[in-house]
Design a protein around this nucleic acid. Structure first.
Lengths: 103, 103
DNA sequence: GCAATAACTTACTAAAAAGTAGTATAGTTA
DNA sequence: TAACTATACTACTTTTTAGTAAGTTATTGC
C-alpha cells in the first residue's frame, strides 16, 4: 500500500486496473502456465509488456514464478492465493462484457 | 465497440478500466447526484478529469446527464440501466480491496 | 455595474503506460 | 563453430492519461 485510498475500490484498481493485468490473471485461472504459452494466449501483448506485467503481478503477490534451471530457460507462472481470490471478480468482468456485447 | 477483443474481459476493461471511471460509477450507486456534489465525493480528482470522465461515461451509455435550464447551472448524473448492471462488479471490487487491505 | 454562482472549456504541460527493435544468456544440436 | 532455443532486458519513441491554471456563461443579489 503506497498510496492513500479513501475507498477500497481505489486500492483494488491500483492493483489490477491496467490494460494487461486482468487479462493475464484471467488466463491463469485454469492453472499454471509456462511463460511462452501464457504470452501466446494474450493476443496483442508485446514481449516487453508481458514481462513487465508479470513482474508487477509477482511483486504484488498475485502470481508466483517458478524457475527451472534448464537451458533453454523454463519458467512457470501461476496464481497465488491472493490472486486466486480475484477469481469471482475476473469471471464477473468477463461475463459482463460477454452479455453487454449483445446489445 | 471500436477495438477487436479476443476476450470479453478486454472489452469490459476498455469501458471501465481507468483510474476514475469505476470510482465515479461507484459513488452513483446510491442514486443520482448533482455534478458538484459528485465531484466532491471523488477525492483528488481534478476538475478537468471529472468532466472528461463523466463525458466518456455518458458517451458509453453508463450514466445519464440531466441538465436543468437555470442559472447558475444545475446538472445531475445518474447511472443508466447499463451502468446499474455493473453494480455487483463495483461492489465486489470495493469489497475485495477492503478485505485485501487487512493482510 | 460588479461580484458570486455552478458547470464547463481550453491551452498547455507533465507523467505514466505501451510499443519497437535490438541484445543477452548458455547449453544443445547439427 | 554456428544456429537454435525460451526467457528476459534495455534504450528509445509514441501514445495515452492526468494535472494546472485560466477563461466562459448568464442570471441573481447587492
Amino acid at each position: 500500500m503506497n498510496k492513500a485510498h479513501h475507498c477500497p475500490l481505489n486500492y483494488t484498481m491500483n492493483l489490477i486496473g491496467t490494460k494487461w493485468k486482468p487479462l493475464i490473471l484471467f488466463h491463469l485461472l485454469e492453472g499454471g502456465l509456462r511463460s511462452g504459452v501464457l504470452q501466446k494466449k494474450i493476443l496483442g501483448i508485446s514481449n516487453k509488456m508481458f514481462t513487465q506485467t508479470v513482474r508487477q503481478l509477482e511483486e504484488d503477490g498475485l502470481i508466483t514464478r517458478k524457475i527451472y534451471p534448464v537451458v533453454p530457460p523454463k519458467v512457470e507462472y501461476q496464481l497465488s492465493t491472493r490472486g486466486q481470490s480475484l477469481e469471482a471478480i475476473l469471471r464477473a468482468l468477463d461475463q459482463w462484457g460477454l452479455e453487454d456485447c449483445k446489445s
